[in-house]
């Protein structure tokens, strides 16, 4: 067991040297009385793929939702690419970040939701290109081009004008992936 872990690490030696892209430091999260996360420490290196496994209700989704800035940690710090996610430094002290800071840092994070949460009033293509056009202010033609390429990559090139309600669960999931990237 130990040996196999070692081989695994050797094979991915580059992970060892790189600075972590995501770091959780003693992160706690409570919902009311219930403390779901009791001090999470986690380091994820660039290009590393991590699977979180655990029984339902153990807080897997909460860990991810905090990274997507949808859930504020009760205490502890999350660092993404060298920047505090939920905090800003002011006079040498860390204070809770406001929405403006969150908008800056969450730009590089994407998420596929459990229920996909596609926008039902938009076509698949619109689902993918709305954010690039209106948030990143990319020009419409190139956003469209990129979105089409993305959707073709996930095998939905023939469904560009379909609405989410016309897709199967798996197809929706692929749209959600294209949208998040």
């Amino acid at each position: 067991m130990i040996e196999s872990t070692k081989t695994h690490k050797d094979a991915h030696n580059s992970f060892e040297e790189a600075e972590p892209i995501v770091t959780y430091k003693n992160v706690h999260k409570s919902f009311g009385e219930v403390e779901v996360l009791k001090g999470i420490d986690l380091e994820i290196k660039p290009a590393e793929k991590v699977a979180l496994i655990g029984p339902s209700g153990s807080g897997k989704t909460t860990i991810i939702r905090m990274l997507m800035t949808l859930e504020r940690p009760t205490s502890g710090h999350i660092i993404v690419d060298g920047n505090y996610l939920w905090h800003v430094e002011k006079n040498g002290k860390l204070i809770p970040a406001n929405e403006r800071h969150l908008r800056e840092v969450r730009g590089d994070i994407g998420m596929v939701f459990q229920h996909f949460n596609l926008f039902p009033h938009m076509t698949i293509l619109e689902n993918c290109m709305t954010a690039p056009i209106h948030v990143q202010k990319e020009n419409k033609a190139s956003a469209k081009q990129r979105s089409i390429e993305m959707l073709e990559k996930v095998g939905l090139g023939d469904k560009l004008e379909a609405y989410p309600s016309q897709l199967s669960g798996g197809q929706k999931q692929r749209v959600a992936m294209a949208r998040a990237s």
Partner: peptide, 14 residues
Amino acid sequence: EKGQWEASTALNFS
């Protein structure tokens, strides 16, 4: 749905 708010937050809409 609440998920629509969350998706639009995740996509960084104002």
